[in-house]
Design a protein around this nucleic acid. Structure first.
Lengths: 108, 108
DNA sequence: CGTGCTACCTCGCATTGCGAGGTAGCGAAA
DNA sequence: TTTCGCTACCTCGCAATGCGAGGTAGCACG
């Protein structure tokens, strides 16, 4: 099973979750996700996700200069984004429970 | 968040899990998945999944007549399929832990 | 000046769930 | 008998999205 397929549909939630603990920018978000355990997330996936979240008004953005390289494009959760995150988290939890049930079927 | 996107990459595992508790056929598998909580699984998704699992030698199949309609095409886990299921279950569990960690970031 | 890190981006492919549509057997109701 | 509803199978093509590959640039250090 490929992690990449698992990420589908969950990456939005993962990114929104990272932003819940403070504004961040693409490169850092990738790093955070990898540290958390999503070791194979590709940069392109995250940038794509951010673009979509921005289009749908779930995050806003602003530029900030940096000492250690080019400027950074920070992203910040909008009200929509926060609500979206709460809803997605619930959907995710229900989903995990369903899978849990299925995975333990065998024992019966 | 759409359940359908979440299912990507996990449907294989879900179907393999259903089969772990006994041979079954497409229509019944759909029913079982829906009862378990994946209420919106489409038939086409399951038939597609079964076709793929069969091509990759994770399941074998045989026909059986039925009293309540047309014949049934039963699927059975192969050795490959059983191994695949164990591996996928582990990958899934690790994935869930990673998400769990991310979802609780906010509290810090 | 080359190397390596930070940081951004685009393009197009591959995967896969699903909606829509179709075929057919069977039993019971109209 | 015809029709309905359930069981049970299938195909086609779209839509969504993660990712690999590739590119640009600033900065620091040797």
């Amino acid at each position: 099973m490929d992690d990449s397929q698992l990420l589908k549909g969950v990456l939005d939630l993962a990114v929104l979750s990272v932003l819940e603990s403070g504004d961040s920018y693409g490169y850092e978000i990738v790093t955070r996700l990898r540290e958390a355990g999503h070791e194979r997330v590709g940069e392109a996936s995250v940038y794509g996700t951010l673009r979509r979240l921005h289009n749908d008004d779930h995050v806003s953005s602003y530029l900030e200069p940096s000492d250690s390289g080019p400027h950074r494009k920070y992203y910040s959760l909008t009200t929509n984004g926060r609500r979206r995150r709460r809803e997605d988290a619930k959907t995710w939890e229900r989903f995990v429970e369903t899978m849990s049930f299925l995975l333990n079927q065998e024992k019966k």
